[in-house]
């Protein structure tokens, strides 16, 4: 499907459950409420016209100014050759969203990584152990933008940043 067809198809299928965002370099992007994510993903996988069978990328993103935190899902369909970008935005204090690893197993490690580095809880995750950090890590969530650790040294300004 072309991006335009996909956009209208998704709008028609999900109506007010999704909210359109500016496209990511030609890829249609949508915002989904955390409570609708499971339903939306079920349709995305099972609908024969959408048929998103592959999850190339999943990552967290932090917005301390608005006190929000989000998860970005980059989806792809090998069968139909189209991309989609989904986003879930949650409040920063106790972010919780459903795990999508039952739709795409690839999400398993991506979610473990995101949970560990951003502090987002993935409900019903099959194996919610930490993945990357040292076993006795207790300094919070390092990928949050306002994180400061005791061993963390910021690079001095080089003058190229301005």
């Amino acid at each position: 499907m072309t991006p335009e067809e996909l956009t209208s198809k998704i709008k028609a299928t999900f109506a007010e459950k999704v909210e359109e965002l500016p496209a990511v370099t030609g890829i249609p992007a949508f915002k989904v409420k955390p409570e609708h994510l499971e339903e939306v993903c079920t349709t995305l996988v099972s609908d024969p016209e959408l048929n998103f069978d592959n999850l190339p990328c999943l990552g967290g993103i932090d917005y301390p100014e608005t006190n929000e935190i989000g998860v970005v899902y980059c989806l792809f369909s090998f069968a139909k050759r189209h991309h989609l970008n989904l986003r879930v935005i949650m409040p920063r204090d106790n972010p919780e969203v459903i795990s999508v690893s039952k739709f795409w197993v690839a999400a398993d490690w991506f979610e473990r990584e995101t949970a560990e580095l951003f502090g987002i809880k993935f409900k019903d995750h099959p194996d919610p152990r930490p993945l990357l950090l040292i076993e006795e890590w207790d300094e919070g969530y390092p990928m949050r933008r306002d994180w400061e650790g005791k061993d963390f040294i910021r690079m001095p300004e080089t003058g190229q940043e301005k």
Binding site: V24, I27, G59, I61, C74, E161
Partner: peptide, 30 residues
């Protein structure tokens, strides 16, 4: 804005998801 680009590296697909806030540094790189 945001960009998602992927290429075929020898081991498979390598992709960057960049979020820019208009400054000289990326806001987030996945």
């Amino acid at each position: 804005g945001e960009a998602f680009a992927r290429i075929e590296a020898p081991r498979g697909e390598m992709a960057y998801f960049i979020v820019s806030d208009g400054s000289t540094k990326p806001y987030r790189v996945k």
